[in-house]
Design a protein around this nucleic acid. Structure first.
Lengths: 267, 267
DNA sequence: AATGGCAATTTAATATGATAAATTCACTCC
DNA sequence: GGAGTGAATTTATCATATTAAATTGCCATT
């Protein structure tokens, strides 16, 4: 079957499809291929027809097919390999890839620290309350090993920043343990935004020795609650920590106004 | 200056850039162009150099440049126009476009109703508490006009479903009023997921007259709280409503297991 | 019999040039 | 002076050829 998305010559009166939003061929063909994937229930690892096959089936030129495949690749849905048995293979859209695509949406939108913490306060306590129900020994070990990155006071401002990033990685690990993909992605995305902030602008310019100690004690409390399966304590500990972090961050928000989001890293 | 992202011949020993993740040219060039946008501070509406210009500057073929531009177009960052004065123009990444790209990430991930409501319960109360501080008369009018879509009981099962979608549009409107882009996007995205659920699977198969009435009364209470600028009441009302909706939805979750997310609509 | 490298094959990746479609803009005609 | 008309400009698509990458299998070496 596999009718081409758009008829070649302008003679035909009525277009076949009713949905047909994109009027340029590569996008239309990308949509067609997506529909195949959904209809045939293709799974990650499965292979699409080869280039020459697609050219024949869809009745379009090589360049058009390649542009269509590039669209799907940019969206993270496929990856192509050369050589015998090569071609385009379905892939899961990686978390980081999806995050990079989503970050583009906020590029011109002036995200503030207040914006980020409004969500963190709402989500991270829920995250750890959930985690307390099913976290494993191995996962707790991973949290502990991440904490070792900032048990000692930082020796330089550079190290100060590295420790702050490592602290965010702790939260990133927490997010990755969630069984709710939406919650998991969200918390990780917020961490990512904060990381970009820290890396690009120099928040935390002056060292703050109390902050590190307080962070460590709260994380200890949190891990205890998680081990005990005590959701409500975990929630309360995280909520208190998030509120404290928010206060501290807001005090330095004035310096940061716009344009901190990096467009980088979509591959 | 504008050096090509990757040197043409394989003679050069060390690659210039240190970051250079993608080893295929179109992606590398797309990254280069993104960097221009960030470095030069280009804004939506600004035009990129023309095709022939890019070919000359980057030292690659037309097809490669076109694939690179297609990548950026797929990500929603540019749009191209033909004719004199045409070319590639920077655009803001639209909310719906970003949502479609993000939905791809969850395609193979078995999102459940429980997953969605865990976030809605955390976020929507926060949303309306925030809104109570700055919502305008015009916005309240829009909410009221949306409510008119389900003041009368549904006459058919089809209409039942339409009313449920309209009710979700009410929450979509709420989300759009937020001044926190992250919160706004998130709430709208969750609504989108629920919409896809309702459209694809037939949740709400049997009509539920109480549900509509209860929804209307809660929305009335909510609007009163918003008008009064009473954040805490608004939060409480929404929280109660979300919890009730969650209970009702979970009762029907068993039928829904997997594969409900549509890949469609990224253009 | 296992292994290391070499060559052939397959497939995508890039390049080049020609033609088509869409848009703008100036110009003519009424 | 306004509507239509046609030339100019720019992207969109097509067609074909060449190059690069990855795999396979053969062969020699150990």
């Amino acid at each position: 079957m596999l009718s081409p998305a758009i008829t070649r010559s302008p003679d035909t009166t009525a277009p076949s499809s009713d949905k047909q939003r994109p009027r340029n061929r590569p996008q239309a063909i990308a949509e067609t291929i997506k529909d195949w994937i959904a209809d045939k229930g293709l799974q990650p690892g499965d292979r699409l027809p080869q280039e020459h096959q697609l050219i024949a089936d869809l009745g379009v030129s090589k360049g058009t097919v390649r542009e269509a495949l590039k669209v799907l690749e940019a969206q993270g849905l496929i990856r192509t390999r050369t050589g015998p048995g090569g071609g385009a293979f379905i892939t899961e859209v990686e978390r980081d890839h999806a995050a990079a695509l989503l970050a583009n949406h906020f590029f011109f939108k002036e995200i503030t620290i207040a914006n980020i913490y409004q969500l963190r306060i709402a989500l991270e306590p829920e995250l750890v309350a959930d985690l307390a129900q099913h976290i494993s020994e191995r996962e707790i070990d991973e949290l502990r090993s991440r904490m070792s990155a900032y048990t000692d006071p930082p020796a330089s401002m550079e190290e100060e920043r590295e420790q702050r990033v490592a602290e965010l990685d702790f939260h990133d690990a927490l997010a990755s343990f969630s069984r709710n993909p939406l919650l998991s992605f969200n918390c990780a995305f917020l961490v990512r935004l904060l990381k970009d902030l820290i890396v690009c602008k120099r928040i935390y310019a002056q060292p703050n020795p109390e902050l590190r100690v307080r962070g460590l004690t709260y994380q200890e409390q949190l891990i205890e609650a998680l081990k005990a399966g005590d959701s409500e304590t975990a929630r309360a500990v995280m909520q208190a920590h998030m509120r404290a972090a928010q206060r501290l961050m807001l005090a330095r928000e004035a310096e940061v106004t716009k344009g901190f989001l990096a467009l980088s890293g979509s591959g």
